[in-house]
Measured scan of single mutants.
Amino acid sequence: QRITLKDYAMRFGQTKTAKDLGVYQSAINKAIHAGRKIFLTINADGSVYAEEVKDGEVKPFPS
């Protein structure tokens, strides 16, 4: 399943989102408010992988 960072954070909370991605909650808040195009893939085992689309390139998040 693929979902935006904002939607994932709204569904699970910023604290869990940060923990799942290995970053601080403040980084999640800042990324959402900056309007960054970050998409999360939720794997069947429950693990989460995030990618950011920037300038036409897709890069892992966090980099």
Rank of each mutant, 00 (worst) to 15 (best):
Q1C: 14
Q1H: 10
R2C: 09
R2V: 11
R2H: 08
R2F: 08
R2Y: 10
I3C: 09
I3K: 03
I3W: 15
I3L: 13
I3R: 04
T4W: 08
T4D: 06
T4C: 07
L5M: 04
L5A: 01
L5T: 01
L5S: 00
L5E: 00
K6T: 09
K6G: 08
K6H: 11
K6S: 09
D7Q: 09
D7M: 08
D7N: 07
D7W: 06
D7H: 06
Y8R: 00
Y8K: 00
Y8W: 04
Y8D: 00
Y8A: 03
Y8V: 00
Y8P: 01
Y8M: 01
A9T: 11
A9Y: 11
A9N: 06
A9W: 08
A9K: 06
M10I: 13
M10D: 13
M10F: 10
M10Q: 13
R11F: 09
R11W: 10
F12I: 03
F12W: 12
F12C: 05
F12M: 06
F12G: 00
G13E: 01
G13N: 02
G13M: 01
G13Y: 01
Q14P: 13
Q14G: 09
T15L: 14
K16W: 02
K16D: 03
K16C: 04
K16A: 07
T17E: 01
T17H: 01
T17G: 01
T17Y: 01
T17S: 04
A18F: 02
A18D: 01
A18M: 04
A18K: 02
A18V: 02
K19D: 08
K19N: 12
K19Y: 10
D20P: 01
D20R: 06
D20L: 11
L21R: 00
L21P: 00
L21Q: 00
G22K: 09
G22S: 06
G22H: 09
V23W: 06
V23Q: 03
V23I: 11
V23N: 02
V23P: 02
Y24I: 11
Y24N: 15
Y24V: 13
Y24F: 11
Y24T: 15
Y24R: 15
Q25H: 09
Q25W: 13
Q25Y: 10
Q25S: 11
Q25V: 15
S26V: 10
S26W: 15
S26K: 09
S26C: 15
S26L: 09
A27E: 15
A27L: 15
A27N: 07
A27D: 15
I28H: 00
I28G: 00
I28M: 04
I28V: 10
N29Q: 14
N29W: 15
N29M: 13
K30N: 14
K30P: 04
K30S: 14
A31H: 03
A31Y: 09
A31V: 07
I32R: 01
I32A: 02
I32Q: 02
I32D: 01
H33G: 10
H33R: 14
H33N: 14
H33V: 13
A34G: 09
G35F: 06
R36V: 05
R36Y: 06
R36W: 08
R36I: 05
K37Y: 09
K37A: 14
K37W: 07
K37T: 12
I38T: 00
I38Y: 01
F39A: 02
F39P: 00
F39Q: 03
F39V: 07
L40S: 00
L40Y: 00
L40V: 15
L40R: 00
T41L: 09
T41Y: 14
T41S: 08
T41D: 04
T41H: 08
I42M: 09
I42Y: 07
I42K: 05
I42S: 04
I42H: 04
N43M: 12
N43H: 10
N43G: 10
N43S: 11
A44I: 11
A44S: 12
A44G: 11
D45R: 04
D45L: 05
D45N: 08
D45H: 05
G46Y: 05
G46T: 04
S47I: 08
S47D: 07
S47N: 07
V48M: 08
V48F: 04
V48T: 05
V48Y: 04
V48I: 13
Y49P: 00
Y49E: 09
Y49L: 09
Y49K: 10
A50D: 00
A50L: 03
A50H: 01
A50T: 02
E51S: 07
E51M: 08
E52Y: 04
E52N: 01
E52M: 03
E52G: 01
V53P: 02
V53D: 11
V53C: 11
V53E: 15
V53W: 14
V53G: 04
K54R: 13
K54Q: 12
D55Q: 08
D55W: 09
D55I: 05
D55T: 05
D55E: 10
D55P: 06
D55K: 08
G56S: 07
G56K: 08
G56C: 07
G56D: 09
G56R: 06
E57C: 12
V58C: 08
V58Y: 11
V58E: 05
V58P: 06
K59G: 11
K59Q: 12
K59V: 15
K59E: 08
K59I: 15
P60K: 10
P60C: 07
P60S: 08
F61P: 03
F61C: 06
F61L: 03
F61H: 02
F61W: 15
P62A: 04
P62D: 06
S63I: 09
S63H: 11
S63G: 12
